[in-house]
Amino acid sequence: MSLKIRKNVKEATVSTFLLAAILVAAFGCARRSDQAEGEKRFITIKGSDTMVHLVSNWAQAFMQKNPGIEVSVTGGGSGTGIAALLNGTTDICAASRKIKNNELMLAIEKHIQPNEIAVARDGIAVIVNPANPVDELTIEQLGKIFTGKSSRWSDFSGPDEKIIVLSRESSSGTYVFFQEMVLKKQDYMTDAKLMPATSTIIQSVSTDRWSIGYVGLGYALAAKDKVKILAIKADENSPAILPSEQTVKSGQYIISRPLYLYLNGQPKGTLKEFVDFCLSNEGQAIVQETGYVVVK
């Protein structure tokens, strides 16, 4: 399982690069083919960094099935993607969070109707160093750690060591989601180290014995031998649940979120084909291969 995911993450990386190369080449001739017929031949997708691997894999498979259609995928963050959708510079926005109210207001102003389609789920795994004796925490305890109310592992039947809290940067959709879901909308402690990327969190957790961090499930499983994934309890009396495809899908593992595609209005023509492809069995198989969880 872990091997398979790791292989896929690797493949995804390679394919992302390939795709980028193809897209650079494609950009040159894109404009010409864009409006040649009534049908759209060129789709742009922009948004969440979490979803870049997934969307690129979809795009690649879709392009293989539909030669002549070009799909361009870029990251930049969910906020960037939504802004692009509102400015009309992208056809589809990939977002790891729901559109915010102020963004909706802006959309109304610009006569754009954001249409939300849930295409996959992502579990957020909480990781610690393998040397850490703590195996499970409740959501409330996690909240205390990340807001700084508890600062020593001894509060959670661990050794008397200071907890090193690692978080993503505030620009990350995961940061906001974790804040809402686990911190119950409280602020992160100011001592929390904000890491620029998922890989840097994994690297730090694997070297710093008493650190704790959160990363997407796919990344955590891929690094299973370097970090320990904690089992999470919804509250004191619930069972501790380890994140996995099954537990995220069934909703037993509660730190999980839907991933969305946003379009302007109802999808038509090629855009509809693409969205349908993402939701098809084939598209959902790609979701699984990339390390995320299917919606159906």
Partner: peptide, 20 residues
Amino acid sequence: SVRTMTATIAAEMGEVAFGS
């Protein structure tokens, strides 16, 4: 641990809502 001005701009500019 410290946060520098440059790192703040680089890390946050990408996702910030335009005009906020």
